[in-house]
Design a protein around this nucleic acid. Structure first.
Length: 879
RNA sequence: GGGGUGUUAGCUCAGCUGGUUUAGAGCACUACCUUGACAGGGUAGGGGUCACUGGUUCGAAUCCAGUACAUCCCACCA
């Protein structure tokens, strides 16, 4: 006896195992077939599965499974990303727990720990993906720090350097003066801090007692000032143009420059420009060619360039300088001021913007094809609204700072001698060779490699190429068989927040190194949020564990649950209710299977098919074709959620609620063999159409429904082809269902049990009306007799469909007051409706300018309504 | 501050090229049913000035402009 509930746990592990053993996920180039390829957005190697991954990978798996069923050579390449910042932070934390400080160990030792860490935890997330049912080609698993991949990244750096696209330049970084290290933006916490705004007077050079006033929160940096800036449109300071101001205390003269960057109504409208200690000032300084005076040491104390308070900490210096300014009459006033200050996540020290030497990649030229091919839809963004954002970003692209002050990652292949002269080469030996030719007078025999590594995105932007072939980045190499077969890949599924960091850069690299797009379509998912709309995060504790969900509800349920409400590009508000709905769906299918499986089948010869079954089969065939056609259309437009809703409805409503009810034999009776085999066929076709969404239950039932050979699995079955849709039949069916619903309504209203058979009288002058469906109507509404007569039946309740009136004789059950009320309500609606149609038709301009088809339809609406009103009025008068 | 996107039922969303009854679905809600596939079920029902204000049009949830409110990305203001 089969359980009334579907139990996913054993089914899922069984089939995943089976698929793997039979190599169904593996793909090799096959010239006879069209290739279909997705490269996974590589998750962080140290990460664990979260709800975002679930959504993302479910969508990818659906696409891949469907492509496979459509006869394509489908390949989904998995892998992980070394994620330098996140991973290094985790390793540092792990070491700290063991009482080891990063600063106390060597780079080599640190990397040993990091690799140990990756051996231990690096595979977890991929194992978790298997639980979800992801049909990745695991034999192709790639890691961005695999030796060959590592080499490819270095090749790319060298190649760009040799082409003149990479340069060294200065850049402001977030400096932690306590940890004495640069921090990424992610490692900086911004807090609102109550501070002070100091108004300081600067004397004007060559004038007698004239001065200007600037406002600053950092008076200790005045010694690093390079200019005073005013807005050229500021009437108040016209007289200052071209003059110079004198920094108090150190009496250094600086130019007064003009730039519209200055907000006139903030502070005094005079801005002190300190290029060495402020991001914006640095930019301004570059624009106006100002001197950069760095007065701070790496521990945040003042250096000799400050000339005063040398050696003092920046905050002590602030106090002392304020005091001195006040004592000497330079301090105009002090205001309370709230400002947003960055703190180090690790040491809680106040972040100091600090200039440092970094490596940059010139973006302007290499970006051009990536912009063009997205704007002209060669590469399609889904949804297309992201094109605007993409355009804006790509048109204003800045040079990419590709160096990071970390150890875990691809180390920059620049080699220095003692004087700071450097060459760029893959190995130290190669570097030495180069060094000899580029600096013949150089005496160094031991070169020192750059300490920094590259930005993680500088390796992951090669992903769609490097997962297949890591040797093509040196130029001249045509690429191996895999690369030439699978590249360009088809679809990329990822989150919109990395559209610029990753997607755009992959497109750039694709055109640079292959002269071709890396993928055709980019499907952008939304962010998974909780019911209150908050982003799911560990610190909020609002994210469910996906693996828990899978073990309670089943992977099929979780997959469909995620997809029930997630149109492309829209955020998904996670609610466990959705997963429950997915589970209920699986259960519904399971029980449909139980029903069919439980039937006894008549012997093939000599058993007649009841007329309602013939109609049911014909009708469902039409319905199925219609739905598959729509599903294919949705799929082609990446409307995944809509596709799921369609198959959900097709199975639950059309197959279970209508079709199975139509053909269901009476209790204890057998079903004719023809209907039975047709039903099995329908069931199989439905399972195939559902398989990409719910791979496990469909595979299980596929094997339960028929005798299969070992290799005959639904995962490799053929996607059902849509036949022609018989729309006339579907429309007739729709009317028949309306009749059934009306009769059920009547039962509901009058409290008549479904078991009590009823009579029905139809006032149709068209004898073919609903003809083939009458057996179905009789069965589903339990009618013992159907009469055709133009006579109005007394003592009955009636309803109207398509101007045909239906009477249900109900001796003694008629409550004329209620009956009248219902009719009046309906009349009211119909009259109002007709009114609106009438108004439209009476409008001459409408009749003159609307297309004939629209007018025709309005006329039909009117005729329908008129007939209905007439019939309603008649039944009213009869009461 | 710059840019993007959105606002439709209690909730989450469809509504694709302006016209397909006076706007649909799922969930939630209400009533009734329920030993013969499924209570994780069945049959029905109630629920909406399509954010607001103008405009274009014979016709607007749909197109345009403005307003309000959300939300995301970038830069974060001396």
């Amino acid at each position: 006896m089969l359980s009334t509930k579907y139990n996913p746990a054993e089914v899922e592990s069984k089939w995943y195992q089976y698929w793997m053993e039979n190599g169904f996920f593996h793909s090799e180039p096959n010239p006879a077939k069209e290739s279909y390829c997705i490269v996974i957005p590589p998750p962080n190697v140290t990460g664990v599965l979260h709800m975002g991954h679930m959504l993302n990978n479910t969508i990818q798996d659906i696409l891949v499974r469907r492509a496979r069923m459509m006869g394509k050579e489908a390949c989904w390449v998995p892998g992980t990303d070394h994620a330098s910042i996140a991973t290094e932070a985790k390793v540092v934390a792990m070491l700290r727990e063991r009482g080891i400080k990063k600063t106390d160990i060597s780079r080599e030792d640190f990397l040993k720990y990091a690799w140990e860490w990756r051996e231990m935890y690096g595979g977890i997330i991929l194992e978790q993906l298997k639980k979800l049912g992801a049909s990745c080609d695991w034999a192709r698993t790639k890691f961005t720090m695999d030796p060959d991949y590592y080499g490819a990244v270095i090749d790319v750096f060298i190649d760009f350097y040799n082409k003149g696209n990479i340069y060294r330049g200065k850049r402001m970084v977030n400096w932690d003066p306590v940890g004495k290290t640069a921090l990424s933006d992610d490692e900086v916490n911004y807090k609102d801090v109550q501070s002070r705004l100091y108004y300081i007077n600067y004397a004007i050079e060559g004038s007698d007692g004239e001065f200007l006033t600037i406002a600053t929160v950092r008076p200790e940096t005045i010694m690093a000032d390079s200019a005073i800036c005013i807005n050229p449109n500021d009437e108040r300071y016209k007289n200052l143009k071209g003059k110079r101001a004198i920094i108090p205390l150190i009496d250094r003269a600086i130019p007064i420059i003009e730039d519209e960057y200055v907000t006139m109504d903030f502070g005094t409208g005079c801005l002190k420009v300190t290029p060495a200690h402020d991001m914006n000032d640095y930019e301004l300084g570059r624009k106006h060619n100002l001197e950069v005076i760095d007065i701070l040491n790496e521990d945040g104390t003042l250096n000799a360039k400050a000339r005063i308070y040398v050696g003092e900490d920046r905050f002590i210096a602030r106090k002392k300088i304020t005091k001195e300014l006040e004592a000497r009459g330079y301090l105009n006033k002090v205001e309370e001021y709230k400002s947003n200050v960055g703190f180090s996540e690790r040491t809680d020290a106040v972040i100091e913007p600090r200039l440092s030497l970094q490596w940059f990649l010139k973006m302007k030229e290499i970006t051009a094809p990536a912009l063009t091919h997205v704007m002209n839809d060669d590469i399609q963004l889904i949804p297309s609204k992201f094109k605007n954002t993409y355009n804006h970003w790509m048109s204003n692209v800045r040079d990419w700072c590709i160096s990071r002050q970390l150890w875990w990652g691809h180390r920059i292949p620049a080699w220095y001698d003692e004087e700071g002269f450097f060459v760029v080469a893959k190995t130290e030996a190669e570097a030495l060779e180069l060094y000899k030719t580029q600096k013949p007078e150089g005496k160094t025999t031991k070169l020192k490699q750059d300490e920094d590594v590259m930005d993680t995105w500088f390796s992951s932007w090669l992903w769609p190429i490097a997962v297949f072939d890591t040797t093509v980045f040196k130029g001249g190499n045509k690429g191996n068989a895999d690369l030439n077969y699978y590249y360009p890949t088809n679809d990329l599924v990822t989150a919109p927040e990395i559209l610029f960091f990753w997607v755009a850069r992959m497109i750039i690299a694709g055109y640079e190194y292959r002269g071709e797009m890396p993928f055709k379509n980019v499907y952008l998912t939304g962010i998974v949020r909780d019911k209150q709309g908050r982003k799911m995060s560990k610190s909020l504790g609002n994210s469910p564990d996906p693996l828990d969900l899978i073990s309670t509800f089943g992977a099929d349920a979780v997959r469909t649950g995620m997809l029930f409400s997630s149109p492309a590009g829209n955020d998904l508000l996670y609610d466990e209710k959705l997963i429950e709905q997915g589970r209920n769906f699986a259960n519904k299918i399971w029980n449909a299977f139980r029903l069919v499986k439980g039937w006894t089948v008549m012997q093939p010869d000599g058993n007649a098919m009841p007329p309602e079954n013939a109609v049911a089969i014909e009708w469902f065939e039409a319905k199925f074709n219609q739905s598959i056609t729509e599903m294919d259309d949705h799929f082609n437009k990446f409307r995944m959620s809509d596709t799921l809703h369609l198959i959900y409805k097709l199975i639950w409503d059309d197959f279970c609620s209508w079709y199975l009810e139509m053909i269901k034999p009476e209790f204890g009776k057998a079903i004719d063999s023809q209907t039975y085999s047709k039903t099995i066929e329908f069931f199989e076709r439905l399972l195939k159409a559902l398989h990409p969404f719910m791979p496990f239950i469909t595979e299980e039932l596929w094997h339960e429904l028929g005798e299969r050979k070992e290799s005959d699995c639904i995962i490799t079955a053929t996607w059902p082809l849509a036949g022609p849709t018989n729309t006339v039949l579907l429309e007739t069916g729709q009317l028949a269902f309306e009749v059934i619903t009306e009769i059920r309504n009547t039962r509901n209203a009058k409290g008549i049990s479904p078991k009590q058979a009823l009579k029905l009288s139809v006032s149709s002058d068209d004898p073919s009306f609903l003809k083939s469906f009458w057996p179905v109507i009789r069965k589903l509404s339990n009618l013992e007799e159907v009469m055709f007569s133009s006579e109005k039946i007394a003592n009955s309740t009636s309803f109207i469909i398509k101007s045909v009136e239906f009477f249900i004789p109900l001796e003694g059950r008629i409550d004329s007051t209620k009956e009248r009320e219902a009719i009046l309500k309906d009349l009211d609606y119909q009259r109002g409706f007709m009114n609106s149609v009438d108004r439209k038709l009476a409008n001459e301009k409408f009749v003159a300018s609307a297309p004939p088809a629209v007018i025709e339809m309005e006329r039909r609406k009117k005729a329908d309504a008129e007939a209905k009103i007439k019939a309603l009025e008649e039944s009213l008068s009869r009461l």
